[in-house]
Design a protein around this nucleic acid. Sequence first.
RNA 1: GCGCCCAUAGCUCAGUGGAUAGAGCAACUGCCUUCUAAGCAGUGGGUCGGAGGUUCGAGUCCUCUUGGGCGCGCCA
Length: 650
Amino acid sequence: MLRSYLAELFRYAIESLITSGALPAEVREATIEIADPKNPEHGDFACNFAMVAAKKAGKNPRELAEMLSEALAVFQEFESIEVAGPGFINLRVKSSYVASWLPTILTLGPSGISKSTPKGPGKKINVEFVSVNPNGPITIGSGRGAAYGSTLCNVLEAAGNTVHREYYINDGVNSEQMRLFAESVLAITKGKPVPENGYKGDYVHDVAKSLSHIDSDDVDLIRYLSEKEMIQQQRTALSAFGVEYDTWFSEQSLHDKGMVDDEIDLLEQKGIADTAPVRTKLKLAKGNKIEDVFTEIQDTPVDEDGNIITDNSGSSDGHTLWLRSTKLGDDMDRVLLRKDGRLTYIASDVAYHKDKFNRPENADKLITILGPDHHGYIGRLTAVVAAMLLESFELGEPCHAEIDQKLYRGEGEKAACEAALTEAKKRLEVQIYQLVRFLKDGKPAPMRKRDGNIYALIDLMKEIGLKIKPNGTEEEQLSAGKDVARFFYLMRDHDTTFDFDLDLAEKQSDENPVFYVQYAHARICSILAKADTVLPAESRTKEGSPELFALVSHEKEKAVIKKVLDLSDEVRRASEDYGVHRIATYAVELARTFHAFYDQCKVIQTEDPALSNARLMVCEATKIGLKSALDLLGISAPYRMERADSVPAE
RNA sequence: GCGCCCAUAGCUCAGUGGAUAGAGCAACUGCCUUCUAAGCAGUGGGUCGGAGGUUCGAGUCCUCUUGGGCGCGCCA
């Protein structure tokens, strides 16, 4: 917030130099970055604009920096402006000026302080995350997707976008896995052995138990009921983990409405899907360059003379219907409709993505968050969206290049496919989070046990909560477990594999970083509560005044306020590169800055109500910053934290 | 074979093309008569896997390379 303001001052100074003819207009193209100086002795902020813009200005960086610093000198906000090194402009901002932001922070509150304004108008974004099959509980592996996805949504919202949170339920009746799941449940209710490769974990027995009052051999009915049960459990677990959705979208509903069939007809009409028994595959060289295009003949129906029967009539009875996704950047064509008439999930995906775009609230952009085992889907999903967006085309002249000739029937098709792919890449963003390794006693903890049991997210929360709040209620334990687990998932870059140290997570000591942050919040609440009892109410104010701002002179006070004002910049950056771990890192830094302030600046001094007042405002501001960051992360900001000395040591 | 990700302190990881590469944990030294010591201050600890390149400047970008994780079905 403060940085953007300072950048404005720079822009103003640069404009005045352009107007006076001292600088060419091209320097406008260089970006103004207000960064942290490496060495705090260099000041509060550093700007490298002079180095970046030197070429465009036709001056050497030092000279340009000198000019700029002179132009900036008119602003009262600065205590000092120095040109250093190769052309840095080091800025020191007046403490009283930084303090003058306090009333703004207090007015904005936790929900306002994190808001950053997007460059253009905010987008309408649909974020789909977790979306696991309804054949088991949410695992600790999916936990990362849940934590990441929900926080990304919060961050995108704070950055000025409208977000729709969505869960896609893979409940298509054609799913073999779901059928197997239902058969396993059915077998257990009947006291029969579970089918080979069936589902065996305790949770399957739980589902069976919940259906024990149903006396039926109807696999479809059992499938439907056990899915419902599983989805309910997933919802409960996610909710306890602080994850709520706007839409739980049923795949089967697409089939029921005939949308999948309609989409498939459309694809055939557009000529991007057909039943020719040939699959095209790409051989890729380094850099994803197409080295060769070759074909495989699949289960070829032949006539009496042994000739391949091709069927482009649009009827796919007895034939495999292929999506020609190689034309759309995928490395092989994909099956839409099997020979036996059952649709694949790719078929539903086409209809699903169309529906997402067509709903009025999700016009602009789709974000899909997938686990590390799904990264091969990026190309496939993009091709699906491209196929859906593909507009009808004339085949046109044959292509020139040899590769294109093998891939496209004409220049017209090639152009249409490329256009569709470009648009698809613009409108669909697939974010992959990397693997989490769970360590217990320094050894990897298996997520899927040999007996078929799964390490569920809900169990992780319970286990951590039990250790941290051994005397708490079940609800308190679950909530504490949620806070710790979320923080651990979120403190690392989602695009990096990391080790989740269960032993550390279960410690309620200072070793656990989440408490470091929460403790800062609780400490502030404690100070504020005491101030209410010790200081006369009439001396308290939330209004600012130059006299009050002048009292804020300690470097630690200034540091805390500056840090609080940084939150909106962190949110903007996180929303741009989807790196929401910045918010967790930020929370730790803000807490650290506050703890240092606390140590050096006694807040409540009854003999000096004015200074107390100023410092209480700093506390309020910090509380708002911490609450805001923790809200984004989906972690609670406690008012009290008591060291559990009464708890017997382990 | 192709793709995605990773490699930074003893361990787990931050790091916006900028100045002397940071934090937590672990080790060590101090600090509670004072708003919560779940805290603070300090010490030690580094060939940013390796080699080239791009430029005023590279942990960061590019190429190559070494090592590791994961993925490449008419399963979802």
